[in-house]
Structures are given as C-alpha cells and as structure tokens.
Design a binder for these strands. Sequence first.
DNA 1: CAAGTTACCTGACGGC
DNA 2: TGCCGTCAGGTAACTT
Length: 277
Amino acid sequence: MPELPEVEVICRGIIPHVRHARITDIRYSGKPLRTVVPIDAMRDTLLNVPIEKIWRRAKYIVFSFANDMTLIFHMGMSGKLTLCPPETPPAKHDHLFFTLDSHIQLRMNDTRRFGQVVFVDREKSGDLETTVFKNTGPEPFSEACSGSYLHRRARSSNQPVKTFLMNAHIIAGIGNIYANESLFAAGIHPATPVSNLSLYQWEELMKKIQAILHWAIDCGGSTINDYINASGEQGYFQANFKIYGKDGTPCTICRAIIEKMKIGGRASYFCPVCQKI
DNA sequence: CAAGTTACCTGACGGC
DNA sequence: TGCCGTCAGGTAACTT
C-alpha cells in the first residue's frame, strides 16, 4: 500500500469517522512491530481524550489529542488502517484495535510488521518538525520542495537519481513506484547521477512528481466513499502504471521494450529510448 | 564519508 | 505435492 498517495488516501478516509471521537478501548495482538508498541502509554494517556486532528506527514499518519499527546503511525511495507464495526472478528494480521465512542473500531493491520506506532509525549508534541520529523525532507507539494532545492541538495552527490528521490531525508513520500513513474514521465533514466541533472531538469521532474502524486491520490480517492465497508480496498492508480512492473512490454510512447534493472537494491524500470542518462 | 548491504517479517510465486 | 530461493510499496543501522 503505502507511499504518499496511499497514506493520504487512508488519512482522508478515516478523518470523517475519527475526528472528535474518543478512544474507549485499546487492544493489541502482542506481536512485535518494527519498534516497541507503546501500549501502556497509550492506555494511560489517550483513553477518553478527544482526537482533535489527523493528518499526513511523509508516509506517516499523525493523530493529535486534546491533551496534547500525539500518536504517529507508519505503515511500513504492508500496513493499513481500517475502520469496521467493533464486533467484527479480528482479521489475520490485525495488530491494534482502537474502539471509538462513535461505535466504530479503527484497526492497524500489517502483514509484514514493518510498520510502527510512535507515542509522542506532550513536551515534544508541540514541535514535531524539530523532533520526530527533524530528518524528514519537505513535502512534495510544499514551497520548500522546489526544483532548485533538489538541484542544490544534489550538487555534490553521484547517487542515482532514483535512489535520491526515494531518500526520505531529501524529499518525503516517494517510494519505489512513484520514483519509477516520475522518472519515466520526466524522460530521465533512473541510474542518472544526480549531479548530471540541470536546474531545468529538476524543475521539470518536480512538476512530474507533483502531477503523478496528485493523480494517484485522485484515483485512490475514488474508493474513499466506501472505505468504511472496504475489505481489501484498493485505489485505481495501478491501472495507470506506465513503467512500474512493465518490463518486457512496449513503452506507451515509443513502443521500445521496457527494461528492468536493480538500482540500490530496488527494482527499477525504464524505457531505453525515452529515458536518457 | 558517501554509498552499498543487511535486518526486520510474512506470503506469493516460479523452478525443480 | 512440497521444498527452496527470490521478491515485494520502507527505513534505519550497519559496513566498506
């Protein structure tokens, strides 16, 4: 599921059902996630406290409570937040169950358990950007995340551009799929050393990144309405993949056969004609 | 010290 | 059928 668009879709889907609600009960499967689940702190401080605000930062979903405590979820490779009636039997890999006073249950399901839940105490909650997110790069839709910003960060590096885009310390929210798709849209070979790219190329790439992320959110958004009923909910964007997973098939632009290579240990797809180093 | 590798975990898939 | 290796949308801690 979870790159920026998927996390954004989950977030938008749960907001109407969760905002202003209070958690009345928290249960935990006991299975370890990527980091220790702060079950005691959650039970001690969050029960019956209104949830004030829910938003996305990078690939994280942040819940802030009326008592200034904050809870942050990361979905890892396979995590989801789902809503269901509280009496719904636990599904395989449901790990956290938050019963709400709105007679709904928010669940975190995560097959591979690379996800995490971070509890942030009152003292640090006020300034997440300088604590939890101090090493997280700017949001792709923000002013700070411009072509010139990327150009500057790339100056003294020979990293492949795809690895650079997937580095959350440089720019937030881009994973393997959207790195591949954005580079195809921009006509840039994923192995291109970042120092080779001109300011103009960074500006064009940044526009493609934003357009593709917006498009993907809109596609996922079409399933938001029935999110509460959704079992195995999916966005539509995979129907629009132009390069990810398309090795061996013709490029939609030039009909050349799409190739696959590993870059930084991750599957990378490119058109050998349209994407130049 | 930038950049490559490993570790965390389950499940799906292909080859034999 | 089943056993094995490989791979999967992320990230941080390692090593080189």
